[in-house]
């Protein structure tokens, strides 16, 4: 994995058993981890230097509450992993943060600037770019055109200015150079003139990430960057994600693979049923009872005892009885009494 070489060393020092070793001078890239070391493992805890702050954001689809986050802060310059079972609201939260969806209530801000009611392209222009769970490579554009599209503030994108090549040619050349650099980093430079639709699934993920980087974002939000990517490519993708942090970007990513999450994240936020149920450094998460319950169910590890079974049964019966009793009178299990009340 030659792509991994430069950050192999930093990866070693960032393994989950690191707490003891982080006391030693950590590479600058791990600033976020150092800053987060003393933060308590509590839901909605304040971070030393938050880039994104979410407050009371709720999104309902009909009767279903997809997202209901009371308070969440995302540390600047760190990699924050967002995990949770299917349907936990991770992607919905992503959509809300990037303007692709609007919440029913709540505020959220980036660098102290409210992102409420902004449309997706306005959010992107502020420096918050995202990728998609289902990769959106622009199939009938070449790889290089895909990349150039990512560049910000292009003069040639105005209708009238586009007709005067002199206005945008220089910027275009600079963008092309930058794009070729990035493509070389992502090992896509050989494919630059191919249609993006001919790339493999993993290469599309790489292209999407590289394209997002063209705009020099401050926050990169990756929705399942490793989904459907073969293990060899996963390693190189991981390296690229770590690179982002080393360049000072804030990374938020959704992922299901716990090994990946443990490997690269500085902080992990766990969602279930629309709520944040736990947050903390990666090593804290696997021991968290709420997380284990959310993933595996509360009674996953022990068979029910006879007493517990009786208790569950009694609770169920009581619940049924409550629903049947319309007047709210106390019902006993005695049949004669019930007849009496019916009379």
């Amino acid at each position: 994995m030659p792509a991994d070489q430069p950050h192999g060393a930093s990866a070693a020092s960032s393994l989950p058993q690191a707490p003891a070793t982080t006391a030693a001078p950590a590479p600058p890239a791990r600033l976020a981890q150092a800053a987060l070391r003393d933060v308590p493992w509590e839901i909605g805890v304040a971070k030393p230097d938050p880039a994104i702050v979410v407050d009371g954001v709720t999104r309902t689809f009909g009767g279903l509450t997809a997202v209901s986050v009371d308070h969440l802060e995302v540390q600047r310059g760190g990699i924050t992993g967002l995990i949770g079972p299917n349907g936990a609201g991770k992607t919905t939260l992503f959509n809300l943060l990037t303007g692709f969806d609007q919440p029913n209530a709540g505020t959220w801000s980036f660098d102290g600037r409210s992102l409420g009611r902004l449309s997706p392209h306005q959010v992107a222009r502020l420096g918050v770019v995202r990728t998609f769970q289902l990769t959106k490579a622009l199939s009938r554009l070449t790889v290089l055109q895909n990349m150039l599209l990512g560049a910000k503030d292009q003069r040639g994108e105005g209708f009238f200015r586009s007709l005067v090549p002199g206005v945008w040619r220089k910027q275009e050349q600079a963008n092309t150079e930058k794009a070729l650099d990035l493509l070389a980093r992502f090992k896509l430079d050989a494919k630059k003139d191919d249609f993006a639709g001919t790339l493999s699934g993993g290469q599309r993920k790489l292209l999407e990430m590289a394209r997002a980087l063209m705009s020099d974002p401050k926050v990169v939000m990756l929705d399942e960057p490793m989904a459907g990517v073969n293990p060899a490519l996963t390693q190189s993708l991981l390296g690229h994600v770590k690179d982002l942090r080393e360049q000072g970007m804030t990374v938020i990513f959704v992922e299901h693979d716990m090994d990946v999450v443990r490997d690269i994240s500085d902080w992990v936020v766990v969602m279930a049923a629309g709520k944040v149920i736990a947050e903390g450094p990666p090593e804290s998460i696997s021991q968290n009872q709420a997380v284990v319950d959310a993933y595996l169910g509360a009674h996953h590890d022990a068979p029910l005892t006879v007493e517990e079974e009786d208790q569950v049964l009694a609770e169920a019966e009581a619940a049924i009885a409550r629903e049947e009793g319309t007047s709210g009178e106390v019902l006993s299990s005695d049949g004669t009494d019930r007849e009496g009340t019916q009379r």
Binding site: P120, K152, E157
Partner: peptide
Amino acid sequence: ALMRSPWGRVLRAVREDEDAARALGKNV
């Protein structure tokens, strides 16, 4: 002239995927 310019590139991006163009900061 329009289609070889960045303006035309955005149009083709919109054809391919509007959301991707939005995520890249284009006012689709």
